[in-house]
């Protein structure tokens, strides 16, 4: 083994150890690193009422009602649902079927009281005109956005 090969193998061994250590730390801290919990996560964990937490998921279609500044909506992850209330002005991108992250806490009745709401943007981008054209023809399916590139 030349000196260069020796140095390279020492570094490779060091890289393996470092990667392993980092993986262990990240796996152990997973619950602290996540930015929000899904309704299923909250149901599974039995989060205590009043404990500050972030709830994330999709705003269930047809669930959003607004009286004055009081907004009621349901957050879903496809399996579990959780009703949420937020008093205040919602971000522009807040809408049904879209991702949302609500900061607040679970109430004793098991619903969610948000003190702040953030809209989550998905990974899809579409020209406004194309979407309007599709809507005009009645062919607009939000799930189709993912296929936008193939059109």
């Amino acid at each position: 083994m030349t000196r260069k090969q020796k140095r390279l193998s020492i570094l490779a061994g060091f890289a393996v150890v470092l990667a392993l250590a980092t993986t262990l730390v990240l796996v152990a801290l997973r619950d602290q690193i996540v930015f929000f919990y899904s309704p299923s996560d909250i149901a599974e964990r039995g989060v205590a009422a009043g404990e500050p937490i972030r709830l994330g998921g999709l705003v269930k279609t047809g669930s959003w009602t607004r009286v004055g500044e009081t907004n009621d909506f349901v957050v879903t992850d496809g399996q579990t649902e959780m009703s949420a209330r937020y008093v205040g002005i919602l971000p522009d991108l807040f809408r049904e079927g879209q991702g949302v992250v609500a900061e607040g806490s679970v109430t004793p009745t098991g619903s969610f009281l948000a003190s702040n709401v953030l809209a989550k943007h998905d990974e899809n981008y579409m020209p406004r005109e194309l979407v309007e054209e599709l809507k005009r023809r009645g062919e607009w399916e939000p799930e189709d956005v993912a296929l936008g590139a193939s059109r």
């Binding site: 943007h121 998905d122 990974e123 899809n124 579409m126 936008g148």
Partner: peptide
């Protein structure tokens, strides 16, 4: 949001 360009099924934008 997750990645948009180099993802399975092609870029998530036209």
């Amino acid at each position: 949001q997750p990645a948009s360009v180099f993802v399975a099924g092609g870029p998530r934008m036209p």
